[in-house]
Design a protein around this nucleic acid. Structure first.
Length: 544
RNA sequence: GCCCCUGUAGCUCAGUCCGGACAGAGCAGAUGACUUCUAAUCAUCAGGUCGCAGGUUCGAAUCCUGCCGGGGGCGCCA
């Protein structure tokens, strides 16, 4: 939150507290005056339920208490507060003066695309966001796409909020699935059928044909799959700082260290020839196998070692965020149990489970891909709808919902496509600035522009929305909910389109002073749109 | 049977964590608005037992309990 915005909120809270004390209310320890943005415009710019909250304890009528508080607040109101009023059962509403909104505009322009809406809540804390982590046994599919868009957006939001963020992809390059994949490639390359439980699909045929005869199908297949995954993810601008190999972890001896650590705390035991994790001691439904009776590791054991490694890397204050698909939800309890057994605070490991996406095209479900013989490839989604629309569409809703992604709709360059609507708002604002330049409008410094001329309802609405961006970003980051930004962008874009429609910036009928003020306003609007889109990893085009 | 997510307008969804003011958008529907910066837009109208039933509260879409519906998961696979 900018200093300017923070000051407004703090000054309102302080004034409220002072008024409560002056009214003879005994405030409970740690009392925070509740201040929020009212849902309805008529209720002002900020609203407090403080009178409602304390009335009962003080034996007062809430409405009367609110009136008394409002009268006191009116008496001592600061320069940016235009009006204090009482409404409903006892809400105290603050209406801010336009001067406050003009400060928001100046703030946004000064901070710019690289700074507006930045928050400091991370305090430099290190966080590893692990996402996608598809098996290197084939192309990434559409479901991975949602995790990719989400994980990257969370990473961007956290970085914008002052976290030291690392993006990581865990490569499951050993184990049963890898064996089956290698065997499938090897078999098909010599014209043999795919082994039982192996991988089918056209890509196996294509890749095995590419594979040199002397290549190790395991090693070659791993590289081939990773190259394919990296390429597709890169095409939607998702890049990782670290691609972490499970095999390398095993080779490093970390597994033995982890087994020793688990043994040392009595968290493992042998039964029926296998080694078990006593995860039921830490909230899991039942115990889990670490080492199978044939001596092979399960998926779980290297994963525990991997999380130990990550925890070590982020340090004692650091945080791990994992993005897993809905089909892995049952795995959360055992992973947290393992962390708890090792003496780590389980709250330092956050697992976000993303629900499944249903893919449609013009209302018809699309389920199977020709090339993989199974799920739709992410490549096909990006090819059909484009990187920006793919990301934005994946981030339209909360990760707790299982939405429908209509490919035709997302690809359409029409007004009912939200990504297009938002990007268009940015392009329009840029086009106005370009027109001003083309018309030879000379821009003085912002200090010489009279922002007080911005009083049109359309202008005020842009400024109000813009003033909320910092709060929205902070909420989106701390709730790991990028869709909050998506929702804000749609509202903000609507305000920009409305302004565009009703308020001309350049032209013969517009007074030069107003042109200048509105040019500053659209600079601020451009900053807001670009920052919002940026936190989602969606581009902000200057023309469409 | 157990676990996770979910049920809000005809459709797609915000809002639920942290309880407040007549429940918000977009699309679809109806009706309007451009001699000027991209009509790829804007405005107005209409549309809802917030799955159901109890409970807590001054106040419940939001918290608690129970039921019903939808999705996903319950391997010595990953």
């Amino acid at each position: 939150m900018s200093q300017f915005m923070a000051d407004i909120r703090i000054s309102l809270a302080d004034a409220l507290r002072a008024a409560l004390i002056a009214a003879g209310i005994d405030l409970p320890a740690g009392f925070q005056a509740g201040l929020e943005r009212p849902a309805r415009r008529e209720h002002g710019d900020w609203s407090s339920n403080a009178a409602l909250a304390v009335a009962k304890g003080a034996g007062r009528n809430p409405r009367e208490l609110a009136s008394e508080l409002a009268a006191r607040l009116e008496e001592h109101r600061s320069e940016h507060v235009a009006e204090v009023s009482v409404a409903g059962p006892g809400f105290i509403n603050f209406r801010l003066a336009p001067s406050w909104l003009h400060g928001v505009v100046a703030d946004a322009v000064a901070a710019g695309v690289q700074g507006y809406g930045r928050q400091s809540l991370g305090g430099g804390r290190t966080v590893i966001v692990e996402f996608v982590s598809a098996n290197p046994t084939g192309p990434v599919h559409a479901g991975h796409g949602r995790g990719a868009a989400y994980g990257d957006a969370v990473a961007r939001l956290l970085a914008w909020c002052g976290y030291d963020v690392h993006r990581e992809f865990y490569i499951n390059d050993r184990g049963t699935q890898m064996d089956l994949y290698a065997a499938s490639l090897a078999a098909v390359s010599v014209g043999q059928p795919v082994p039982e439980g192996g991988y089918n699909g056209q890509y196996i045929v294509d890749w095995s044909a590419e594979m040199p005869g002397e290549a190790d199908p395991r090693q070659w297949g791993r590289e081939r799959a990773l190259a394919d995954q990296r390429e597709v993810l890169g095409s939607m601008a998702v890049e990782f700082d670290t691609w972490f190999s499970e095999q390398a972890l095993v080779d490093s001896g970390a597994i033995d260290d982890t087994l020793a650590a688990l043994d040392a705390v009595g968290a493992s035991y042998e039964s029926n020839g296998a080694l078990w994790l006593h995860s039921s001691d830490h909230g899991d439904d039942k115990d889990r196998v670490l080492v199978k009776s044939d001596g092979e590791y399960t998926y779980l054991l290297p994963d525990i070692a991997y999380h130990r490694d990550k925890l070590d890397r982020v340090g004692p204050q650091g945080l791990l965020i994992n993005v897993w698909g809905a089909d892995h939800h049952g795995y959360v309890a055992r992973m947290k149990a393992a962390m708890a057994a090792l003496g780590c605070d389980p709250d330092r490991l956050e697992v976000v489970v993303t629900q499944l996406v249903r893919l449609e095209r013009d209302g018809e479900e699309v389920r199977l891909s020709k090339r993989t013989g199974d799920l739709i490839e992410l490549r096909d989604v990006v090819d059909e709808v484009g990187a920006d629309a793919t990301r934005f569409t994946y981030l339209l809703q909360s990760m707790d919902t299982a939405p429908t992604f209509d490919l035709a709709m997302a690809a359409a360059q029409v007004m009912d496509n939200p990504v297009f609507y938002v990007q268009m708002a940015h392009a329009r604002v840029c086009s106005i600035a370009a027109r001003a330049r083309a018309d030879g409008v000379v821009r003085p410094s912002i200090q010489q522009v009279d922002l007080g001329l911005l009083v049109h309802e359309r202008e005020l609405e842009i400024m109000r929305q813009l003033s909320m961006l910092g709060e929205v970003i902070a909420a989106a980051a701390s709730e790991r909910a990028p869709h909050r930004v998506t929702a804000w962008l749609r509202d903000f874009a609507a305000a920009v389109h409305g302004f565009y429609h009703d308020c001309y910036v350049v032209g013969s009928g517009i007074p030069p002073d107003l042109t200048q003020a509105r040019l500053v306003l659209i600079d601020a609007a451009r900053v807001g749109l670009a920052v919002g889109l940026g936190t989602l990893g969606v581009s902000a085009p200057e023309a469409m």
